[in-house]
């Protein structure tokens, strides 16, 4: 812990390459405040197309807060204020007349705790497409439910009990159901906020496998506490520390040859 104190604000600037060759989302000089608290300090980073970017860092470092900026989930917190630019392709998502409803249809989110709706498995998946008007009839709806569940690797387990409540599934199944629900609206970016923290290793392995498959079609940003998980699923990794983005780079490089001493301390387990 004493090591952290050695660094002043100036020394916590970002090292590594923040740009991506093929960016999907570009964030520049993002600051987030919770009332008086400055939670995210001047963060700039790109999220590349069809890549998995992992965000790691000790608790309270702002990685979840930053993730929630990407689909404006922070809007629901009354005291939260965001400045800076976040672009999805070419649109600034924090512009005044941006509607968050279509934005969240484009940038889906999977939460830390599995949170299926207290409805049937079928309705859980069909809800998103229904409200966005993606389905015209029951047949299309059936199709979307089936393909989403197949993509999430849950179809075989639940195909006979689509009418049972989503809450009756096990924790790992519930989380995959939530992923299926997110991909049912065919988003372009999927945000995952510690999706495996409530799951056992077997369920975690399944979700990680799934993330790897989903990369083909989607851009994924994942927040995780497990460095092994970040190493396994991501191509790029971003290390956050007390609201600062300390280091960004290819996952392999970050874990084998970190540039910043803070990153090194964290991944070698000296703190965090």
């Amino acid at each position: 812990m004493s090591k952290q104190k050695k660094y002043t604000r100036e020394q916590r600037g970002t090292v590594g390459r923040i740009e991506s060759d093929n960016p999907r989302m570009t964030c520049r000089n993002v600051n987030v405040y919770y009332g008086d608290k400055h939670a995210i300090i001047d963060v700039s980073i790109d999220v590349g197309r069809n890549e998995v970017i992992a965000m790691i860092g000790p608790s309270g470092c702002g990685k979840s807060t930053f993730l929630r900026c990407l689909n404006r989930m922070n809007d629901t917190i009354p005291t939260c204020r965001v400045t800076g630019d976040i672009f999805l392709d070419d649109t600034d998502i924090y512009e005044k007349n941006i509607d968050v409803v279509p934005l969240r249809a484009q940038v889906g989110m999977v939460f830390q705790k599995p949170n299926p709706f207290p409805k049937s498995i079928y309705d859980n998946i069909a809800y998103g497409p229904r409200i966005h008007g993606l389905v015209g009839n029951r047949q299309e709806e059936d199709e979307i439910v089936e393909t989403s569940l197949k993509k999430a690797g849950l179809w075989k387990e639940v195909q006979d009990r689509l009418n049972q409540p989503g809450t009756s599934l096990s924790g790992g199944q519930q989380q995959r159901l939530c992923i299926a629900r997110t991909i049912a609206v065919s988003p372009e970016v999927i945000l995952m906020d510690e999706p495996c923290s409530a799951l056992d290793p077997i369920a975690t392995a399944k979700i990680e496998e799934l993330i790897d498959e989903l990369r083909e079609h989607y851009t994924i940003a994942i927040v995780t506490h497990s460095m092994q998980q970040a190493a396994r699923v991501s191509q790029r990794t971003a290390y956050f520390h007390l609201g600062d983005l300390i280091e960004v780079g290819e996952t392999k490089k970050i874990f084998t040859n970190p540039q910043h001493t803070l990153t090194e301390d964290y991944i070698t387990g000296r703190f965090g």
Partner: peptide
């Protein structure tokens, strides 16, 4: 978490309340 789930798939505020919060 139910509100977040609904907002996360892109439900509007009214849809979130009427479809998910109110029934509960």
């Amino acid at each position: 978490s139910i509100r977040e789930a609904a907002l996360g798939v892109g439900a509007s505020k009214v849809q979130t309340v009427l479809h998910h919060v109110l029934p509960l």
